[in-house]
């Protein structure tokens, strides 16, 4: 991966840079729903992580292998039974949370396997999404590129929803980054932010 590739990825996926900023050099990382392995490749290049991805899609498995990324083909929904308790510093779920069916169980599994969890997801509370709904349609955008009938997203949520979930389920939020494109959304994040990235651990 060249410096150009790294810069291009960072521009295309602002959540990558946000995630990388939390990860110390040499950490161990498990990336759930890792796609073609771009994030792991990015973290390997920028943070020298020791990582594995989990992915179900056949074509992505080939891409990960071609990318030089370790990948385990498995369905996230069936749990993370191949991974031992506390075997990773970070377990990442990047832009996948909203498409998981057993979301609560998966977050628990993340915190069993990892010391910390990191999730990124499209904020359904983003004003453009709200506006579309107000106009009478389900939102379709670059963050939510699907039509209502073909979307894999079954558990969309807002920042408020995710944070109250964490409170209810005794998950401690350690950090939050909210962005719109590459820009940090500082003011009214649940309204003005399109993408949320959270870092969390098991509550005591």
């Amino acid at each position: 991966m060249t410096q150009d590739d790294i810069a291009r990825l960072a521009a295309e996926r602002p959540d990558f840079a946000a995630i990388a900023a939390w990860i110390p050099k040499g950490a161990s990382v498990l990336d759930l729903g890792c796609g073609d392995g771009s994030l792991l490749r990015y973290l390997k290049e920028t943070r020298a992580v020791r990582g594995y991805g989990v992915e179900i899609n056949d074509l992505d498995i080939v891409s990960c292998i071609a990318n030089g990324v370790n990948v385990i083909q498995n369905d996230l929904e069936s749990g993370l039974s191949d991974f031992e308790d506390g075997s990773f510093d970070f377990v990442i779920l990047s832009q996948t949370l909203q498409a998981t069916r057993h979301t609560e169980a998966l977050i628990r599994e993340m915190l069993r396997v990892g010391r910390e969890g990191i999730v990124s997801f499209p904020n359904f509370g983003y004003w453009r999404n709200r506006f579309r709904v107000l106009l009478g349609n389900m939102p379709v955008s670059s963050d939510l590129p699907y039509q209502w009938y073909d979307t894999p997203n079954v558990h969309l949520c807002t920042l408020h929803d995710f944070e109250s979930f964490c409170r209810d389920k005794r998950v401690t939020v350690l950090g939050r980054r909210v962005m719109t494109g590459e820009r940090e959304a500082g003011l009214l994040p649940n309204l003005l932010g399109s993408t949320a990235v959270y870092r969390f651990r098991r509550g005591i």
């Binding site: 161990s28 020791r50 594995y52 056949d58 498995i61 990960c64 292998i65 370790n70 990948v71 385990i72 083909q73 498995n74 191949d82 991974f83 031992e84 075997s87």
Partner: peptide, 21 residues
């Protein structure tokens, strides 16, 4: 096959696993 993968993960080996249809 996953019984092979697990001890490799435990020992932090580089490992990829593909399940071919």
């Amino acid at each position: 096959a996953r019984e092979i993968v697990r001890p490799l993960l435990h020992n932090r080996r580089s490992v990829s696993y593909a399940e071919i249809t």
